[in-house]
Design a protein around this nucleic acid. Sequence first.
DNA 1: CCGTCCTATCGTTTAAAACGATATAATGCT
DNA 2: AGCATTATATCGTTTTAAACGATAGGACGG
Lengths: 295, 295
Amino acid sequence: MDAGDLRVFEAVARLGGMNRAAAELNTVQSNVTARVKLLEEELEQKLFERHSRGVTPTAAGRRLLPYAQRVAQLLDEARRAAMDDGKPKGALVIGSLETTAALRLSPLLTQFAEAYPAVDLMLRTGTTAELVEAVLQRHVEGAFVCGPVDHPDLQETTIFREELVVLTSPAIRTLDEVLARRDLKIVVLRLGCSYRQRLEEVLTRRGVVGLRRMEFGTLESIIACVSAGLGITMLPRSLIGPVWRDGRMAIHALPGPESKAETQFIRRRDALASSALTAFLDLTRRSRWQVEAAD
Amino acid sequence: MDAGDLRVFEAVARLGGMNRAAAELNTVQSNVTARVKLLEEELEQKLFERHSRGVTPTAAGRRLLPYAQRVAQLLDEARRAAMDDGKPKGALVIGSLETTAALRLSPLLTQFAEAYPAVDLMLRTGTTAELVEAVLQRHVEGAFVCGPVDHPDLQETTIFREELVVLTSPAIRTLDEVLARRDLKIVVLRLGCSYRQRLEEVLTRRGVVGLRRMEFGTLESIIACVSAGLGITMLPRSLIGPVWRDGRMAIHALPGPESKAETQFIRRRDALASSALTAFLDLTRRSRWQVEAAD
DNA sequence: CCGTCCTATCGTTTAAAACGATATAATGCT
DNA sequence: AGCATTATATCGTTTTAAACGATAGGACGG
């Protein structure tokens, strides 16, 4: 039994057919059939039930499948461990909430890209749930998510804690005034933004219904929009210092638990960190907004 | 990178030379050289430092080595998992203290061999330390040892607890009488017997020096020898009931901790039990001398 | 300075894997 | 029912990769 055999087996099991597996593996069907057959003969067990719509794993196949996956994983990790000589290089895929990426990470990313040109840094964005899954599936080495996540296979480090505040035009003085308005519009960076969800929760909890939403691509456009009285938004307090001092917007604080947001970096406990990731986290740690205290 | 490549790599690293690895792998040296070279090119890292007495792993090689071992292990486990269809068959290698094997296991082993003719049962004997190592190295699936072992990677089940007693000829009434004798001989099943060590500890703690030892092959010959007054021995109380009732020997109990002996079955926590092992343990559990309570 | 013990390299041979075409079987649709 | 579609199985051929065997070269020790 060979790792190549297991790779073929895994593809057949996952795709439910030898033809589909052959296509994915860039080979021909007869080849896949032959290798599966060889494997079955070696193990003295039928691995698949053949029927006219493809194949389904037998009991033996189901027993073997997790091993096929683990072997593939292990070989991949072995390759990376051997190739990683301590000098950051190669691919580094990390995940992030879109908001975090846009508002916090961009300076860090450019700084990293300059410092380590040999690293191909890739950022994948998604929701916290999607990113947790991506980390578990090893599609990304780690991810910035909204914590705490508290999963046994994940190690999490608090990167920063921030206070979320509601921003309105300067004409509005209190949160109650905000709530009284009928044609309330919320302004967010992207529709999938995690702050949007948070803001909507805050408002619905206070009895506001029938929200309208607006989406903008940059922080500046949102601020302009809010200060013009077109809508309200929610942002970390630390991001809006200068604008507030201009008096262009009013800040409305929220009670403790509602305002607290923790951004955490998660990664698999059992996966070793590449040099590139280590360098990235070092850089992160050196940044001003880093919170030392972590779990 | 292939499992075969890693197998070659591992052999070279372990044996410290391509020639030696070639011999072990039943191939030629040029082949080993070529495959190592291919692997090095794929990983873009030199894996070995070549010198005139063989090779030594580089940093990259040292990083790769544990993966090579784990992949080999995993493939082996995968094969066994896939081949094991629930019907006990194939090889079952277990370890045991020689004493346990001789005095306790033999009926179990014959019973098992009859019930499961498709299983090739192999028993490897050794000291507790050797057996623990054999289990950790996966040379045996599990082993009967003198516990507790208390190792984080091992799961242990108490098979039985027994009371060890000192046996002498009927003429001797107390332990003190035993100790007073100058020409004390101890009689054991085998020189490596764990009861021998135990008995010697008991005696030296009481100031006896200059022990002489005798070895016999069967329980019956030992009993005959002891009842004839040629020496003393130590055995589990439960093994000697009928003989004692004959009045052919005197039994001398020992204070609590010294007399207690626990036999435990240990196996790796992370290795799945084969059907053969499961069947064996089921049979063990059904035996009369099984202790239910175990963690 | 030569014998011994290594690894590296080359051309040849051999074995295995991939390919492509064809056979066969089940399903769904008209 | 008939036919197109989508599957897997099998065969002979081709291609590719691995193993082999012989030879060369380099370091070490007596």
